[in-house]
Design a protein around this nucleic acid. Structure first.
Lengths: 188, 188
DNA sequence: TATTGTTATACTCTATAACTATA
DNA sequence: TATAGTTATAGAGTATAACAATA
């Protein structure tokens, strides 16, 4: 499951592209009519929906819960335009300054290729800084900038707000139980 | 969060594209050297990693658990090449024959655009059939084909195997508790 | 006007391969 | 030879807009 688009963060830069996108869409739309094979007719069913075996698949419900949680996270942190993966990286750099990309990536299970791009974005926003390691010329040591540390104050405030939403959403008891039981799956 | 690639399902059709992909990559690689600004040097940190605030974010752990679960699902159902979203659609069509795409999509929170493509794929594999509704000319009623029903036997067997992996992975008690508490978030 | 199914575009994220610089 | 960072490609998934046909 990738994470796809989800939520309403990052709305700014879409506006400028609307016109040309529309135009090219219209251009390409010419002659794109799919040859649809004629289908047989059938009466439509209309009783209540049965989830059947899906009702016993934890994965299914966990997935839906997780999507709802990420949506709230993205919505809550929209003012600072920080997504879940970015947040986890920022927290780790803040708490562990000077670590290499490889180490941070492994801790969060983020591919180094993906992390490289994400760090470029965070560097562009002047929140983090990369310094070549004096011990290993291949490694980049990661640090928060002064601007980044300042931004983290607001980011953590919003993240805390999101966490309080979770308490209201799934209940404080279930939240705590999940934390206690799931921590072991999130390490390494 | 979309779900991205994840796991090892669908490996077949990659092989044939390797050569041309490599070639075009080499072509484009010419002159793509990024002008990297020289970075200051720094000593590398090396103590144990601190998850800091991340250690209290249920969303973080739920996300990691959910990824692990989907990976197991994809790996376990690789023999039939069925992904989680496809599985959920197949189960619902099997249990609720004759429903429209709109209804199935709403029940599973799958965008109608996305569902249309997925159903094309399932139709191509001759597992499902679309019939125009006699009551509403806009609707397509969905049915499993004989081949599809036959395939579902193996698919459900593998899905059950996956579910037993879950019991071993998170424990039968936690699985049951999650099912009891999360079902309400998965309906609508 | 609104809805159903469809196509297309943009973006996020994962997986993978290739390349460089360094070790 | 192996590792760190980078770039690029393919693919899954989400969000969104537009369109034709139908209601």
């Amino acid at each position: 499951m990738g994470t796809g688009r989800m939520g309403t963060g990052r709305v700014e830069q879409v506006a400028g592209k609307t016109q040309s996108a529309k135009a090219s869409r219209r251009r390409k739309a010419v002659g794109s009519g799919r040859a649809v094979a004629p289908r047989p007719r059938s009466g439509a069913a209309s009783s209540a929906m049965d989830l059947a075996q899906l009702d016993d698949r934890v994965g299914y419900f966990l997935r839906r819960l997780q999507i709802a949680i990420f949506k709230d996270f993205i919505r809550t942190l929209a003012p600072v335009d920080v997504r879940p993966a970015q947040y986890s990286v920022l927290v780790l750099i803040t708490a562990n300054p000077g670590r290499s990309q490889a180490v941070i990536g492994k801790a969060l299970n983020i591919e180094r290729a993906r992390l490289a791009r994400m760090l470029h974005e965070l560097e562009r926003r002047q929140w983090i800084e990369r310094r070549l390691s004096s011990a290993d010329g291949r490694s980049h040591c990661l640090f928060m900038t002064a601007v980044g540390k300042e931004a983290m104050v607001r980011i953590e405030a919003l993240a805390g707000q999101h966490e309080r939403h979770m308490v209201k959403f799934i209940g404080g008891d279930l939240r705590q139980l999940l934390l206690d039981r799931l921590r072991k799956f999130g390490k390494s």
